[in-house]
């Protein structure tokens, strides 16, 4: 099975590729949206600011290609960190910007509730809100590695797959149809992260 890691000029692609390889995936990195037709699954990584990332995705022609593949053909996509945020309808980091619109909601800055330090950096718990194949063989409340200052606010509760206790609790996993997104870095979350990746490799939306 071919997994396409979307290269739009931002993100720690090498680590993501290595982690997927370690999980047994046949993975390739491409900066050409035409390669989507070769892919059975997509991974959207990302480090950086929402506005810049969307500008690059648009410039390289990824936006329509991703939307068509995910929304019309039902190709599974995993968004990681900023990649998860880009699945929203809009974001404000680096200036107001439209997102990919794969999961309804918007991305806003984390607000400290109880003098929490921001960015949210480190290992924190992921509490499942729904049963989902992505969480197979993972204990509820397991720790994953986060590093971010913004968070995804889904418009509908049914798209909230997990929450993490920080700044009053934020949504750490979203999902709608074939689109799933994780705010943490599975590729940097040791063994628990690998389980998430392996689960995504066999994820089929119903």
């Amino acid at each position: 099975m071919s997994i396409l890691i979307i290269d739009y000029g931002m993100g720690n692609l090498a680590s993501v590729r290595r982690a997927f390889e370690e999980c047994g995936a046949d993975v390739f990195i491409s900066d050409d949206p035409a390669d989507i037709k070769e892919a059975e699954r997509l991974v959207l990584p990302g480090v950086g600011a929402f506005y810049d990332a969307m500008a690059l995705l648009r410039k390289k022609g990824w936006v329509d290609a991703i939307r068509r593949a995910v929304l019309e053909e039902g190709i599974p996509i995993l968004g990681i960190c900023l990649g998860m945020q880009l699945m929203a309808e809009s974001g404000v980091e680096g200036g107001e910007s439209e997102g990919l619109g794969l999961v309804p909601g918007r991305v806003i800055r984390l607000e400290s509730k109880d003098s929490e330090r921001i960015p949210h950096v480190g290992w924190n718990e992921v509490h499942f809100q729904q049963k989902h194949l992505l969480f197979d063989a993972i204990s509820d409340g397991a720790d994953f590695y986060f590093v971010h200052s913004f968070h995804f606010v889904p418009s509908k509760p049914e798209h909230v797959l997990a929450i993490t206790p920080y700044c009053g609790g934020f949504v750490s996993v979203v999902g709608k149809g074939s689109a799933v997104g994780v705010q943490f870095h599975p590729e940097k979350s040791s063994k628990a992260g690998f389980v998430i990746i392996k689960n995504f490799l066999r994820y089929k939306p119903c």
Binding site: V47, G48, A49, L82, E93, P119, V147, S149
Partner: peptide
Amino acid sequence: AFKFGSQC
């Protein structure tokens, strides 16, 4: 920070 995000 502007280009790659504060987090890194």
